[in-house]
Structure formats: C-alpha cells, structure tokens
Write a protein that binds this DNA or RNA. Structure first.
Length: 599
RNA sequence: GGGGUGGUAGCUCAAUUGGUUAGAGUACCGGCUUGUCACGCCGGUGGUUGCGGGUUCGAUUCCCGUCCGCCUCGCCA
C-alpha cells in the first residue's frame, strides 16, 4: 500500500518540487479529453487537485485515472508543482497541484445517495443526511465542526486540569429520581422487577465527590432526559460538568468566566471583556426572560402608573387583576424609529403572536409629528407627556404594550422583544454578549400543583444571609444559583449547593417531599452530608449549545456526530428497534403493546 | 399529547380546475473534449408520486387512516 506522506489539504507552495503520497476520496473528476484529466482528492484537511497528463505520465496511469469516480478511495503518488493553468483562489491548496505518477485504488464506491459538495449538500434533506451520516460527515463543514468540538473539549480539559480539577467518571446506570425530567429506564436482569435509570446529570455524584475530598471535579459526560427534542435540544446531550469545594459563588463564576474567556480568545482571538451581571428580578423586568439577549435595546418598562390614568378599558381591566396578591400590570417596549417595517399588518400580527402566550393582544401606538397616531393613540393622548418622558420617545417611535397579569405581560413582551429585533433586523452580527444571571428565587409557586417547586434543583443553596427567609418566606428566598447566558441563550447553569442536612431537609419539606420519600430517593446524599460535607458548588456547560454558538448553527444535530431526530430515532442504525422475546424474558419485561413491524 | 409544514427519478424540485406518455436540473451510463476547478458539448437509462383504504370513467391532485422528516406548544428540577 502506498504510505501517505501528506494530507491533501495541507499542501502549499512550500511543498513544490517534493514527491508526495496522498490518500483520500475522489471529490470530483474532470476529464478534458484523451490526455488530460483532473481529479480533486479530498481528506479531512481539504482538497488538492491531481492532474493526469499524457505528456508527462504513462498511458496506463491515465487509463487507471479514467476509472475513478466520485467517492472512490485512492492513494496517489506524484510531484507537487505550481498550477500550470493558473491558481484557484477558492482552495487553500489552489496554488499547487500534484502530477500523478502512480495510483492505487483501495475501494470503489457506489454513486453516493447524497452529495458531499457543500453547494448541493445545503439543500439535501436532513433525513437523508442522517441516514447516510458517514457520507454527510465527509463534508468540509461537518469536519470543521467535529474538529472545533474536539478543540473545545481539549481546551476545557487543559484549562480545568491546570486549575486543579480531576476528571472523574460517574455511573450511567443509576436510579430514578423524583422531580426533574422524565428518566430513561433500564430493566435489571439480576434484580427482577427493578430498574436502573440513566442519569439526567451527574449532579448528586459530583456533590458526593466533594464530600469524598476530591476538591475539584471535571467530567465531559452524556446526560439523558426522556423529553421531546427541539432545534437546540436532544434527549441525549453532553455537559462539561464541574464542581468545586470550599468556594462561594464569586469564585465559581470567576473560574468559569476564565474558561469562556480562554475559549473565545483561542478560537476567535476575541476578548469577551468583563462579563456583565444581572439579577433574575432585573432580567425579568427589563427583558421579560431569565436569559436576556443584551445585543440590542428594546427594553421593557413598567408603565402601570401612567396607564392607570387613561380611559383605556384593556389597561384598566388588566390593572384590576389580582393573582395571589400580585396586581396586574401594563408594560411597554419603545421601538426606536425608523419603524417602517412595523406596518399595520405586522403590528396586528403581534397580537396573534401574543395570544399564543394567553395574552389578549398587543395594543400599540406611534408618536407622530402631532402626537400619537394609530392604534390606541386616542387613549394615550391625555398622558402623552408622561409616556414620552417615561419611555424617552422621539418622533417616529412605536410603542408596544402588554396589559395582563405580571407573569403573562412579562413573558409576552420578553418573547415579542426578540421577534421585533428579528423583524427589524437589528440583532448585530459578530457580537458575543455574555451575562451572568444571579439571585434566582429558590422556589416558584406551581399554580396547578399548588406547591413550591425548586427553580433550579433542590440541592441549590440559598444565598448567604437568606437562610432565615427560607424559614419565614420561602417565596422571597434567593438562591445561590447562577446562569451564564450568551446572546440570549443559556450556555451554563449552576449553583452553590446545600452542604447542611438541616437546610436540605427544609428544602425537601418545602417542595413537598416527605422525609420518607427523601430518605428513599436521596438517602445517600443526606447521609453523605452528615459525614463532613465541605461547602461546595459547581456548574455545567451545555457543550452542544456552546459548540452551536461557536460554529454558528442553530441546529443541534449539526454539532453531534450521530444525532437523533425529533422522534428520538437514529435513522442510520434504525434505533430504537425491537428486542427478541428471549432478551425481554431475561430482564423480566413484558411489553403492553405489539412490537411494530420491522422495516 | 396538541398545532403547523413537508414526503414525486439516486438527489433537489415542478406538474394549471381531478384529465393525453408525471417533467427539469443534477447524479449515473455512453460518446466527444489537453488547463479544468459547480468544467463544457451531444445522447441515453432512470418513477410502487411515503404506505393503506375511499370517492371518481379517471387521483401526484379530493377525503379518511397511518408512517417518516422539520418547526413549535406542552414538556425539558
């Protein structure tokens, strides 16, 4: 076998004059006639042009080259020289070519069912790409993503290990937990009728590693949650999971900021600067969401006191609302001029959008040369001066309102804010806005279940100084949780953990987990906390989402080598699939449904 | 589980109100072509219109069911 000396994509003018051997796949093949054939050979690093020229090589080599087709696998020995026909600026290797003098065919290929050319491939159905993933992954774009992902995990390991983190593996076969996402469960063969669960995250194990004195822990691990996928979410995903002992939240946030600073510096030569902080309460008020996109304005303002002075029934009704003692509100977004794209039709469309969030609609108006125009203008005229003052309006600005319960008005404008930014095209490209969101509430009241639920997870500690409030007014208690948000997307989330049994008991109590239940489900953690648990805290980065930002895709399947579809299928291997009856018998499982036909 | 959208040649798509032999580009096959690089020119092969049923003289087209992809709500501590 011809032994490769260089990678196709690595050859440059500095190699001119060298005899090289390259191996790879035939990308394209251009037959110019009896004595001149071009062939682009592709490997992981890129393309290089091979030329077969009758004036320079024997006829048998030309004949061999004539049999080459797309995706044939070959090794080629030849001489690197400057391109005789002029450089191709589109290729990194565009200044040179290889004059072939020997060809070894390793394997032929049937015509590929999907194209590797980026030009065609962007149009190819994702279904086909997933079914023939081994061909799809040959595309330069996919190779680039795989490589970037590998680079990111290397940087993570290097950075955290240099900072004293130990990489430790935790088990995949664990047990089901109450709370949280639906578990994937695995039947036990040795224990009839018992089941393992696959981990939603290594949360409890990493805390126990801190109790075990490991001090700092790192793992790049798969997490599994049996919930419906989305464009940015898979049931099976990867976290960069971290935990530190003897730290407060400042130290965790600083360590993690250092990591993303390193990533952006290494990958983009970009300085992320000081990472801004915002409290959860502030973020909800100003951005209507707990993961604010700060790349553009359109901040939300509360105009309830001004709205109260109008005769607009929608506002009056909203302000009269009450939910658990919390009055309704009127909130507004100022959309700065020019707003030509916000036509009457678009603005009316926002009301339909709002109805999707159980809101009544989106009242709007516009400040013209002679006061408010269109929409709810006539109701706003009496409070014109105040509204202009409160929102800082100038001529041409559009104002969008939401009047409802606080949570609905907040959510609607939070979502609408993002939509308007898209519609107006004011989201700047090439910006990386990181924000730490802090001071989350410990609990959220679940109206349906009529109980408190942990906003983060039930092992999250209250903030220092909040322990008393935990006893007296749990709804007001702030947690030591923190989320790292990038351009409006959560890329990491974590917290300082409870390291005290009594506090942990209290939290379980508040979320309605009985002592017996807590002991059964989390007894091992409660036990561990009794035997000398250090103060500790940590975080987990969503690796897939991080890679998505870095490579610039909004499709999580692009950053996973072998992803699943929206229905949780692996189209390449055909999973999930039936199991033999004997296998089911061994694990003591009887299906309640007929297995679907194979195929 | 709900809503939306799509499934036609290997691939990407078209097909008028339900009407003649379901077309185009590309790929593939054959021929031509000595500086191409999304090579070019000529010719050709290629179809269970996702699957099953129904309405009709006639269904890619209309109806019902079902499977699959994508987006989304619920869900995702």
């Amino acid at each position: 076998m011809l032994k490769r000396t260089h990678l196709c994509g690595s050859l440059r003018t500095s190699h001119v004059g060298q005899e090289v051997i390259v191996s790879g796949w035939v990308n394209t093949y251009r037959d110019q006639g009896k004595g001149l054939i071009f062939c682009d050979l592709r490997d992981r690093e890129g393309l290089v042009q091979i030329v077969f020229n009758l004036e320079e090589v024997p006829e048998d080599v030309i004949a061999a080259s004539r049999g080459l087709r797309r995706e044939y696998v070959v090794s080629i020995r030849g001489l690197v020289r400057p391109r005789a026909g002029g450089a191709n600026p589109k290729l990194a290797t565009g200044e040179i070519e290889i004059v072939a003098c020997e060809v070894e065919l390793h394997n032929a290929s049937e015509p590929p069912p999907i194209s590797i050319d980026e030009y065609d491939a962007v149009k190819t159905n994702e279904e086909m790409r997933l079914r023939y993933r081994y061909i799809d992954l040959r595309r330069p774009r996919m190779q680039e993503i795989l490589r970037t992902r590998s680079h990111i995990t290397k940087l993570a390991r290097d950075y955290f290990q240099a900072n004293g983190f130990l990489e430790i593996e935790t088990p995949l076969l664990i047990k089901t937990t109450p709370e949280g996402a639906r578990d994937f469960i695995v039947p036990s063969r040795l224990h009839e009728g018992s089941w393992y669960a696959l981990p939603q995250s290594p949360q409890l194990f990493k805390q126990i590693l801190m109790v075990a004195g490991c001090d700092r822990y790192l793992q790049i691990c798969k997490c599994l949650r049996d919930e419906d996928p989305r464009a940015d979410r898979q049931a099976e995903f990867t976290q960069i999971d971290l935990e530190m002992s003897f730290v407060e939240r400042e130290e965790v946030m600083e360590m993690m900021t250092g990591f993303v600073r390193l990533l952006w510096s290494e990958l983009f030569k970009y300085d992320i600067g000081e990472v801004a902080r915002i409290t959860y309460a502030d973020s909800m008020e100003r951005y209507g969401i707990d993961r604010p996109d700060t790349r553009y304005g359109l901040e939300i303002r509360d105009v309830s006191s001004i709205a109260a002075k109008t005769e607009f029934a929608v506002f009056k009704d909203a302000l009269a609302l009450d939910r658990r003692g919390k009055p309704g509100v009127v909130k507004a977004i100022r959309v700065p001029a020019p707003c030509e794209k916000l036509t009457r039709k678009v603005l009316d469309g926002y009301s339909d959008f709002a109805k999707g969030f159980k809101a009544g609609g989106i009242p709007f108006t516009k400040l013209g040369a002679n006061g408010f125009e269109t929409g709810v203008a006539k109701f706003m005229e009496p409070v014109k001066a105040e509204l202009i003052e409160a929102l800082g309006l100038v001529q041409g600005d559009v104002v969008l309102f939401a009047a409802d319960h606080w949570d609905i008005a907040t959510k609607v404008l939070g979502e609408l804010r993002q939509k308007v930014a898209q519609d107006l095209g004011i989201v700047p490209a090439g910006r990386w806005n990181f924000v730490w969101v802090v001071d989350f509430p410990m609990f959220e009241y679940d109206e349906e279940g009529k109980r408190w639920v942990a906003l983060h997870h039930p092992f999250t500690s209250p903030n220092p100084g909040q322990f008393g409030i935990l006893e007296t007014d749990p709804g007001a208690c702030l947690s030591a949780g923190y989320d790292l948000v990038l351009n409006g997307s959560e890329v990491a989330g974590g917290s300082i953990r409870i390291h005290n049994t009594h506090v942990q008991d209290r939290v379980f109590d508040l979320i309605g987990l009985s002592k017996e239940e807590a002991a059964m489900k989390f007894g091992f953690l409660l036990d561990a906390l009794k035997y000398g648990a250090p103060p500790h805290g940590g975080i987990a980065f969503g690796l897939d989402r991080l890679v998505m930002h870095i490579v610039g895709t909004d499709n999580i399947r692009d950053v996973i080598a072998f992803p699943k579809t929206q229905s949780g299928m692996d189209l390449m291997i055909g999973a999930p699939g039936p199991a033999d009856q004997s296998q089911l018998d061994e694990v003591h499982v009887k299906s309640t449904v007929e297995a679907p036909a194979i195929g």
